[in-house]
């Protein structure tokens, strides 16, 4: 029997939430393709991660462990993923979107001679749907190869809940080849706040923030909710905040319960990364800013005056 194989992304011993969103998609895809659902956990000493995924209803969890697999390089993880895909007769191999999946999955596609769909949002059992042109067009795509490889846009699917069934774990021995790239170090963005892709509330600042020091206004507001900080490309381009915070076509795709856009005009490429948020609030002094065309509620005002007032009033409200 053929399989749908989902590669698990994890960090610091925990499965990424976006993987659980992709898992919802993989469950649906396995049904539509009448295939088994298999998960693949790759890493060094990651049996706890595999064990934590046992109640999610997969037919099989494959575990591949090696010291050389501690950091995800496209060469090593790509090799392992392609080998496991062959062993479980995968017709679909996917991973949640993000820099890890985007770096890795095309390499897997090339190994399996498979067509690849980047950031799919829908699958009807035959065709795939994804966005192009910064979200201004939705494309229906057909893959003509026997295997499809994809990254899955987490914001398009609900987070999978444990169903109680107990999946089997199979340990596979896969020799890791010599590679032409070596991991040197990871410099983590130090933050007590959640990642924008995983937060319930995201407050983002744009060109209107006028400088890095003013992002304090964004932080003060988002901290009331335990939320995340985001930024437009204009703010990143100006060097006010690291690219890791960028929301948009060339940054992160987020869909929180509440998205607050502050001093963001709403360029096409920014809207691409946040237009699926449940509730959007925009604060901008330019009443013609395109952000107001997608915002559920807009406040035309000077952000430097309004942000402290809003934070103060919300603090009282939430207490």
């Amino acid at each position: 029997m053929s399989s749908v194989l989902l590669v698990v992304e994890h960090r610091n011993g925990k499965t990424k939430t976006a993987t659980l969103n992709a898992l919802t998609f993989a469950q649906q895809a396995a049904k539509k393709l009448e295939a088994k659902l298999c998960l693949l956990v790759i890493g060094n000493a990651v049996q706890d991660i595999a064990a934590s995924l046992r109640p999610f209803g997969a037919d099989m969890i494959y575990l591949v462990e090696d010291e050389s697999l501690e950091h995800c390089t496209a060469e090593t993880w790509g090799h392992v993923t392609a080998e496991v895909a062959k062993q479980c007769d995968a017709v679909f191999v996917g991973m949640n979107s993000g820099t890890t999946g985007r770096n890795l999955m095309p390499r897997v596609a090339a190994k399996l001679d498979a067509g690849m769909i980047t950031d799919l949002i829908e699958f009807d059992g035959e065709d795939y749907i994804r966005e192009m042109w910064a979200g201004n067009a939705q494309a229906t795509l057909a893959v003509v190869t026997p295997i499809t490889v994809a990254t899955i846009q987490g914001t398009a699917f609900a987070t999978a809940e444990p169903s109680g069934e107990d999946s089997l774990i199979t340990l596979l021995e896969i020799p890791v080849p010599e590679t032409r790239t070596r991991f040197l170090e990871m410099r983590e963005t130090r933050s007590d706040r959640p990642d924008a892709t995983e937060a319930r509330v995201v407050v983002s600042g744009g060109r209107g923030m006028k400088g890095p020091e003013n992002f304090k206004l964004i932080e003060d507001l988002t901290d009331l909710f335990g939320g995340a900080v985001g930024a437009s490309r204009a703010a990143v381009d100006s060097g006010w905040i690291s690219n890791d915070f960028q929301v948009g076509q060339t940054g992160k795709n987020v869909a929180p319960d509440l998205y607050v856009a502050v001093g963001i005009s709403g360029a096409i490429q920014h809207l691409a990364g946040m237009k699926n948020s449940k509730v959007i609030v925009a604060i901008n002094k330019d009443e013609d800013a395109p952000i107001f065309e997608v915002a559920d509620a807009g406040l035309v005002a000077d952000l430097f005056k309004i942000m402290p007032e809003l934070t103060e009033a919300l603090k009282n409200e939430l207490e």
């Binding site: 820099t99 790239t181 070596r182 170090e185 990642d195 892709t197 690219n243």
Partner: peptide
Amino acid sequence: EREVDGGIEVIEMD
């Protein structure tokens, strides 16, 4: 230096 989710990853490539 690579821009990845959560920070900067540094790798060496032949």
